[in-house]
Design a protein around this nucleic acid. Structure first.
Lengths: 212, 212, 212, 212
DNA sequence: CATGAATGAGGCTTCATTCAT
DNA sequence: GATGAATGAAGCCTCATTCAT
């Protein structure tokens, strides 16, 4: 499944390109549409958003939309794939030069919070994709989990982390990040306070039980 | 905010009742509608569900719907409040006779997973409420967090848990539960495997770092 | 009416030519478009066919279409005129060396069936023209009828056929040919069986009443 | 095929009825829509007709249309089935009390011409159905042919008509009727002149060859 | 209390045609 | 001559909601 959905992205882009958008002008329009869509979808959600609105904001005619995207669903899906890609890139890049796995978690959480602050809109989009394309929703989190699991396994093998089923740990950590991000970044529209970030890290590293 | 949203529920019910002379027949119809709505909303999501479908399943006329609920949004919101109420009741009841806070977490997670397995439909509804009534979405999690925080504070005061910002811990734990529930109960349509549950508990209790 | 419509054809061509300096390259493009249009219109019908599709199949840009044809309607009409022309040419040519009028009918029916088998696509086009340009539709059949009437009158004058209102006979014969062609060639996608052809000829020559 | 398409009619009607239209009011609306549709489709053809136009003429809201018909296609198809039914009923009724098969043809042709004069609109509809639902188009003529064949076989068995492949004769006769109807009723918007009708009958009875 | 027919705004999408390059 | 991106009108259909009975 992952493969397919992942590849769809490129295929899709290529197919569209082969039909149109061979010029810079076309590519610019495409970008205008994506940007507009990101904002509208993020603000009003998928269902309350309308194509008219998107094209209005993009400053193009309604029909132009369909030169670049097959449907409302498709542009939405593309946005999700982009978000997934960007976020994973940012995290893996930031984490790449880290010394310990513990530090990696710290950096990773930080980048994640920064990202959703920056892309507040796109972030909400992910939440709604499950009602539009459930497979893509699963794919979204599976992608993250896979990368996470890999890192965890290395850390466990190296003795940095004790052995705990990596998939469980991965989803648990993602859950922690998502809910703290939701609570502070999305609801409060601020940064996650340092205290909270520290607490979260202490929690996942050492748990809530008192250390003896 | 909480107050208002919480009260809406009762107000709503009362208003309708006062209009309808509280007949049993009326109350039965109301219940039929709620039950039908639960299934339809849960299956197809809020936007794809239609009032006709709900009334059809409930076996009443279209117009009848508006005798009991002001709008599509409102019945949806009521369902969310019901879900919130039931789940919190079940958990607090199950947890009430527990000896340690640690055991409370264990029981709590278990009950939560069982609940979403049972109410898979209603559970999906919560995910979608954020696009219909964002305040209610916040209310939903705030309610949980509040109860959770209270329990955590007691445990910390008693020295069962070490002191960590309780709100952070509460949202983190909720995040863990939600994502494991999503991954195993909703995606696999099975129980959360015991191994996963154990791993999760170990994780939140003692963290991933090796114990010295 | 006939005159005008008939002339439109040439006028149209000439006008375009005069704009386009009659280059061979231009004429080739024009032909590519006509050929593509014939296939697309024939396959999907006028309304379901699209200009993009035609230009795609012709291997030219969308805009190019309008260099050679004024509109979707016009190319469709031109196709009809071409069909009319070809079919009448084929028939009159085949019939030209015939000895009796009776034989002419035989040959004529045969050529007609062969033609629609060959040009199944173009043939369907004629059926649809009535909803695009009713005059042209009438023109199409009037052209046939006129030729037919002429031949019939000669045969009647010569005593080969008895005298019956020639226009009625002409339309009746055309109707017979069309319906047998529809039934066997278009529906069965085969030749009209010899038995059917013979039956038809017997029928129009001698009727259904028993010969005394 | 015939069965299915034929039955669809009743099924369709019933299905719709079960959803709505249980009252006289509903049935009246349904009729208003059918009547309006008959006129609009007949005048402008299927593709150029629009639902708005139909509902406007029927004096109902756009949405009302979809209470009674599933789609633009479906109402069109229903109209065709109705036409087919009515016409066959009228003919078979008129022909039922006839003494000879020859007289039956005479009456049949007459009723047919009268019918298309009366239902000029509906008649054009049939021509276009082939581009909307090809099976239904075939069904339309197959229905006629079947009835026709039956009558012809009887006449041939009785020696009233000589033996000629009945299916061929049926389609040929239908073709004659259609083309004369087209030429005089539809194009001239008048009755088929008696002369023409007589000529046609003579032709199909005795052919064009001189009687010896 | 209940019905269900009717409403009408609004959404997505298609496509013939134009025009700057 | 040719291109192909852009246009925007128009079409079909859905559905939450109302209201006369």
């Amino acid at each position: 499944m992952n493969r397919e959905i992942g590849n769809n992205r490129t295929e899709n882009k290529n197919r569209v390109k082969s039909l149109q958008a061979k010029t810079d002008r076309g590519e610019a329009t495409r970008q205008k549409l994506l940007t507009a869509a990101e904002e509208i979808f993020g603000t009003k959600g998928f269902h309350r958003a309308s194509i008219v609105e998107i094209t209005l904001k993009a400053g193009v005619a309604q029909g132009t939309f369909y030169l670049y995207f097959q449907s409302k669903d498709k542009i939405f899906e593309e946005l999700v794939r982009e978000l997934n890609h960007s976020l994973r890139c940012e995290i893996s890049h930031a984490v790449s030069e880290v010394k310990s796995r513990q530090e990696a978690e710290e950096i990773g959480f930080g980048v994640f919070f920064a990202f959703i602050k920056e892309h507040r809109n796109l972030y909400r989009i992910v939440q709604e994709i499950q009602f539009v394309n459930e497979d893509l929703y699963k794919w979204y989190y599976t992608q993250f989990a896979e990368g996470y699991i890999e890192g965890l396994e290395k850390a466990m093998a190296a003795g940095e982390f004790r052995y705990l089923d990596p998939e469980t740990v991965a989803y648990a950590f993602i859950g922690v990040a998502e809910f703290l991000g939701m609570r502070w970044v999305l609801w409060e529209k601020e940064d996650v306070p340092p205290k909270t970030l520290n607490t979260a890290l202490k929690l996942i590293m050492e748990g809530v039980l008192p250390r003896k």
